[in-house]
Design a binder for these strands. Structure first.
Lengths: 335, 335
DNA sequence: GCCCATTTTGCAACCCGTTGCAACAAGATG
DNA sequence: CATCTTGTTGCAACGGGTTGCAAAATGGGC
């Protein structure tokens, strides 16, 4: 039923090649033929079959968009931006949910079956093996929002997590907090370690050693549970740097549940600046990731790498900034 | 570089056909050949190229997953479920973000270029033209989470929105609210009308006529703005049935901002039961959509329709239930 | 061991495009 | 007008599979 190249060729009275070339940018066609072909094409409502052409060109314009963070509202914003950015670049996101997929092999396989041109891994908590596999299979990979190991050979774009940790430390010190805590994301997340390191380094300058706790996942429930425990466990902490906004929101509820006030009794600092952090009843003071920049950079990187698979791996670390809201006390005014 | 059918055939000492048939369920192959082929295949790490086979079979196992609700956290849960359900059915979601895509034609075109087997529209606020176009193009379409017009020829799965409206009405009446309001989603959303109708009908039985307001979008900001206005505009309303949880959360903040208490001064009833509705500080009383059921039903419908494109359009209306939390006052105990 | 009905198998054409190559046309140059 | 460029065009092979068809192999019954 669908209109094929052949149909258009017949209609326009030219060869298949002529039609094909009309739709191939940079190919050699005379203005006359092109006109004939285009007329026939619009008349028939023809549009070339990407999949068929991928057979010979090896390009599908399909990008695997991989994540396992489907419980974190921040990632809805990320998906929003990625889908738009990819669409704008004439690429198509094949969304892969790795939440309950223990088997890396299977996912890799499926992406290869579809001949994806590249893979964007949007997650900080995916096990390293995934990245490795994709690369071994010769698939261009870019990591966004996570990762850190300089040994990896994949492209990377994210904030400088160590620097974010330092910024968090400076912020808490500025506000006069003397007893600080780190409520990280999952231990296995690549970013968690870097943030902790920066945080610890930064605090060290004020002679402070942070209490360290971890949430089991990037989710409200995990943040809440971890904080509930920490409140009895590490009661003296005045302010917590949380590994992520959604964890911070969970923590916030645990604190209030325990009858303590924010930021009076306990201060909270998040990371991401998801939309919800700005909602009235949340008003989370947080470190903002430049989401839009990260996404457009990631899309740019994947295009570049597809064009030149052998180029050296790129690392783009973008700066993050503090967003002042209501979960940390104000800096004491200096006389 | 990738392993092809040919390679496996050579290795196994059989013809291409034999290999192809080994991987085609229901084809005629002897146990012996199958064994040989499978051995060779695993040895070489072969997996068939879906795209190549789609050329002859006409099936890509690609499903367009279309939405424009990227500001509503509820949809992250929906995407989570859809991706899992599709993956489990050996289908792949090609995610299409229609948020800023005014041009239906363009999206349709791209979906056709990729030969998607079908389309799932997950949104209640997409203009009707989309559905029409897909269908005219002969693409199997199923609508999930929205729509209602019985004149459409697409498959539909959602809650019974009129019934949901009635349930909301009954609930408010039970709690003794005499002055009720309806804070709907966008006027253009197909579901909004149905819910209002059911709500109005239900209230009529108690002789109540609802005040009606609309939010401009399914988002926190719209809900908040609409409620802020309504609070001065329609100050007498004791309880509002909101078109959606995220709108309700926005409304909640507007109410608190105005110095009123919930549910003391103003009652709120949401719809969806997104995860966040259950968070401590939200505790939204809401009407629950059976999300999981809707999703699995939608995936089932799309498979069936792909198998038999000519069958009569299906409508599956699933029941919804009230989830009691903290934004409506309790029903007065009857002696 | 022979004959017939069933399976199994391979050949070759086909799905829808792309592309190297050679043939060809048109325009420039002398 | 002949010759050389340069630009256009069609042919045919190819990419990685599927499938109708006929030939070959297998199995069963006697």
């Amino acid at each position: 039923m669908p209109v094929t190249l052949q149909d258009v060729a017949l209609r326009a009275g030219v060869s298949k090649s002529a039609v094909s070339r009309t739709f191939t940018p940079g190919a050699s066609v005379s203005a006359k033929t092109r006109a004939k072909v285009e007329a026939a094409a619009t008349e028939l409502g023809y549009s070339p079959n990407v999949l068929a052409s991928s057979l010979t060109t090896g390009r599908t314009k399909l990008i695997g968009l991989i994540s396992n963070n489907f419980a974190n509202p921040f990632f809805l914003e990320i998906f929003d931006r990625f889908t738009r950015a990819l669409q704008a670049a004439e690429l198509r996101p094949l969304l892969v949910n790795l939440s309950d997929e223990g088997d890396a092999e299977r996912s890799l396989n499926m992406l290869r079956q579809y001949n994806v041109d590249g893979v964007i891994v949007a997650s900080s908590s995916l096990p390293p093996e995934f990245a490795n596999m994709f690369q071994k299979a010769g698939l261009p990979v870019v990591h966004a929002f996570g990762w850190s190991s300089p040994t990896r050979r994949a492209d990377l774009v994210s904030i400088d997590n160590t620097e974010a940790g330092r910024l968090a430390a400076r912020t808490l010190i500025d506000r006069g907090y003397a007893r600080a805590g780190f409520l990280g994301g999952p231990r296995t997340a690549a970013t968690t370690g870097d943030r902790l390191q920066g945080f610890t380094e930064g605090l060290a300058q004020a002679g402070i050693t942070p209490v360290v706790r971890y949430a089991g996942a990037y989710s409200y429930g995990s943040g809440r549970a971890a904080m509930a425990e920490a409140l009895t466990d590490a009661a003296g902490v005045e302010a917590w740097f949380c590994g992520d906004d959604v964890i911070a929101v969970g923590a916030m509820d645990a604190v209030r549940q325990a009858g303590k006030s924010i930021p009076g009794d306990v201060g909270l600092l998040g990371l991401n600046d998801m939309a919800m952090a700005g909602w009235d009843h949340v008003s989370l003071t947080t470190i903002r990731q430049p989401t839009e920049d990260i996404v457009t950079t990631a899309v740019g990187l994947i295009r570049d790498r597809i064009a030149d698979p052998d180029r050296a791996p790129q690392r783009r670390l973008l700066p993050c900034t503090l967003v002042e809201r209501a979960t940390l006390r104000a800096a004491p005014t200096r006389p």
